[in-house]
Amino acid sequence: MILDPLIGGIAMGCIYSLIALGYNMLIRAMNLLHFAQGEVMMVGALAGVTLVSVLHIPYLAAIPLIMALCAALSLGLDTFAYRPVRRRNVPVINLIIATLGVSILLSNAAILIWGAEPIRYPRIYGSDALLLGPVRIPPQFLAPLVVGGLLMVGLQIFFARSLTGVAMRAAAQDPEAARLMGIDIDRMIRYTFAISGAMGGAAGALLGPIIFASFNMGEVIGIKAFVAATLGGLGSMPGAMVGGILFGVIETFGALFISSGYKDALGYAVMIAILLVAPSGLFGRRARA
């Protein structure tokens, strides 16, 4: 049945989209490639295990807690690591490597806290699939589709309608003009870090039960999400959402038709091909230099 892998691909894609949104928000706001985004997601997934298995908090109630925790983590990273580097007016590449340093630090700190073995989430879902006419949705894909979808819609409404959301967009588009309008740019950057952290946390909480949670999941998944963000167009919000889902679907169908050893390579090959045709991705505006 062709619909089964499609559903699986879209569900994984929603998770990639959430992480990609985090990447693209930071690129849009400050042209920062935040390589530690995947590790923020990883901390979310592992913290989820602790909340659900050890503290016995219901899974759905744990998701907002994890999002809050990862928002705080992301904000902390900005305050204690990136801001001090940024203040010295270093080249962009220094800032990018600082984010790589943070990702190394986070994944190894996670080994100290949760160990190096992958951890299985407790059984959260029943075994019955949800049937919608001919569409069969396995239970583990329901939460990514529903929660991921709601978060993305919510974020769109936030950026389109709320005063803070509009101010954040303005600050990203033209910091000087926004400053003249009385917008506190620093505060908008802090909000951007917090929201991108929350999105990463949600992705981790949704992904943990599908694959095992482990200290190194951030690297693999984070890079895939990053490719998804590029696919859609770096710095673009709709690009992140469409790119994520597209990447999830390509990856799932690729696994059906291509030998599994080249499964990961396929997504990258598609990405390079798309970049060659449309250098700034599907939805991309030219990123600021």
Binding site: P84, V90, A98, S103, I104, L105, L112
Partner: peptide
Amino acid sequence: RLILFGALLVVFMALGA
């Protein structure tokens, strides 16, 4: 080791170009 390496990397990057 790697926690330290990551932290050192961040500090080094503050040195600029």
